[in-house]
Design a protein around this nucleic acid. Structure first.
Lengths: 143, 143
DNA sequence: AGAATACCAAGCGATTTAGTTGGAATTAAA
DNA sequence: TTTAATTCCAACTAAATCGCTTGGTATTCT
């Protein structure tokens, strides 16, 4: 039940971009070296996030990436779904079109649904802005 | 973020044993064929559950498996942890001894913790007895 | 004795993961 | 106008994990 590195690296990258929201494009190598990640690998993740409309890019020297929307309008759920697909503990509860045969009266399915819903509730309720605020709170407590 | 077949098959098997709690040992092939699973594979899962103290076994002809405790005293969490290990979206939040370097003030870690906690809350709150009750409710509604 | 079971350990093909490689296109700066 | 910095893209690959299978031994009821 672990997330893959796609979701984990991706959220870190998006969070860092949120910290610098409004400061113009930030190049990938900055983000990659800061978190000690492969720049080429990160590129794949960022590419998906751009195609999903969560990031904008500026090509060429002095280019880079920036959030496509305000951090308060991007949730952890938005990011994870782009990188990991729908979050669900079993295929039969991904959406309403999926499901197995016996279906009706499958009690284990109810369990998977409850797990799914509780995860989604958490990831959809946390925005990048929430994370930035949390970060500032942590820094203030230290100072 | 899917559970593996270990967790999914294992819960199904345990649920079936809960439906027949108190009726003596049930052989593996019964469970396997009922759910269309490989008996040999299921054997591995059941073996782990037995070693973890959730199942008892009776060897020899007319033998089989049965729950080691009352269904109300076995939770979905008990079962999934035996078969899948600790449930957490990232390694750094498995327990208190794990974690990365930067650690202090890692906001993404807080996100993983909230996901972890919400999953655990669900799986620890559902017992096999709850599932049996749910099953009966479904059957009554149909009748 | 024979059949029905649990128990055990090793192997194994397919799939997924976590990247790497090698480039082409674009743009700012020198 | 060249050069360096960057995004963009597609294909490849080593390693790990998953989902079993195989082949046996031990035990117990009939």
């Amino acid at each position: 039940m672990r997330l893959s590195t796609r979701g984990r690296y991706g959220l870190k990258a998006m969070f860092q971009l949120a910290l610098h929201y409004g400061e113009g494009p930030i190049p990938l190598n900055t983000i990659a070296s800061e978190h000690d990640l492969s720049e080429n690998y990160l590129e794949q993740l960022v590419s998906a996030l751009r195609k999903a409309g969560l990031l904008n890019s500026v090509r060429g020297a002095q280019g880079g990436y920036m959030l496509a929307k305000d951090p308060k309008d991007i949730t952890v759920g938005n990011i994870l779904r782009v990188l990991e697909g729908d979050i669900a503990p079993a295929d039969c509860v991904i959406d309403d079109t999926s499901g197995c045969d016996k279906e009706e009266g499958c009690v284990t399915k109810l369990v998977w649904m409850r797990i799914r819903d509780s995860i989604n509730e958490v990831i959809d309720s946390i925005s990048l802005q929430d994370m930035v605020d949390e970060q500032n709170k942590l820094l203030n407590n230290k100072a």
